[in-house]
Simulated assay, not measured.
Amino acid sequence: MPPSKQKPEPPFQKDERVLCFHMDMLYEAKILDIMPAENGEGWQYKIHYKGWKSSWDDWVPQDRVRKFTDENKELAAQLVAQYKALQQGKNSKQPKKGGAKGAAAAASDGNSGRGSEERGAGGTTSSGRGPRRARDYDLEQVG
């Protein structure tokens, strides 16, 4: 009788602490379940990313999973640093768009795109508290 072909043991075990790629980042994770890959080669792992809701649990191929070693933790830290540097580069190159904060800041220093229609004609005090009452205006004229 020929020896039966036994599938080799998976390189990662259930409940093992691992690092797993999600997009371009490497996150700490835990293996929840294991099954043979659909193509018959390798394994698939159900992963729970540490600190993420269980709705993010996902079946991933073996090539996205890494052992939880100091070397791989260093790789994860390098990827985070590269991502942050990339984000800072994007933020410094792009001009600020006039979102809510941008419009508020522009209005507070008198540099909004609306010109003089906001300033002068009607109405705020120098403290920016809103329109003057007629009585306040009369008192300033007398004094």
Rank of each mutant, 00 (worst) to 15 (best):
P11F: 02
D15L: 12
E16A: 04
R17V: 04
L19C: 00
L19I: 02
C20N: 01
F21W: 05
F21C: 04
H22W: 06
H22T: 05
M23L: 15
L26C: 04
E28I: 00
E28K: 03
K30D: 06
I31Q: 03
L32H: 06
L32T: 07
D33Y: 13
I34W: 01
M35E: 13
M35L: 12
P36T: 13
E38S: 05
N39C: 09
N39I: 11
G40Y: 03
G40V: 07
E41C: 07
G42S: 07
G42Q: 05
G42N: 03
W43V: 01
Q44A: 05
K46E: 15
I47F: 01
I47S: 01
H48F: 03
G51F: 00
W52G: 00
K53C: 01
S54Q: 10
S54E: 13
D58I: 10
W59N: 04
W59E: 02
W59V: 09
P61V: 08
P61A: 09
Q62W: 02
Q62I: 08
D63I: 09
V65K: 00
V65G: 00
T69F: 07
D70T: 13
E71G: 03
E71K: 10
N72P: 00
K73G: 01
K73T: 06
E74I: 10
L75I: 13
A76P: 02
A76K: 03
V80P: 00
V80A: 11
Q82D: 15
K84G: 06
L86R: 15
Q88L: 14
G89W: 05
G89P: 01
K90W: 03
K90R: 13
N91F: 11
S92W: 02
S92C: 03
K93D: 12
Q94T: 14
Q94F: 02
P95N: 06
K96R: 08
K96T: 10
G99M: 10
K101A: 12
G102R: 10
G102S: 15
A103C: 06
A103V: 13
A104Q: 09
A104N: 11
A105M: 10
A105W: 03
A106C: 11
S108E: 07
S112E: 07
S112M: 08
R114H: 14
R114F: 15
R114G: 03
R119E: 14
G120W: 07
A121V: 14
A121P: 10
G123Q: 14
T124Q: 10
T124V: 08
T125V: 07
T125M: 05
T125N: 04
S126G: 06
S126E: 09
S127M: 06
G128T: 09
R129V: 04
R129S: 07
P131K: 13
R132Y: 09
R132A: 04
R132D: 05
R132K: 09
R133H: 12
R133N: 07
A134M: 15
A134C: 10
Y137H: 08
Y137M: 11
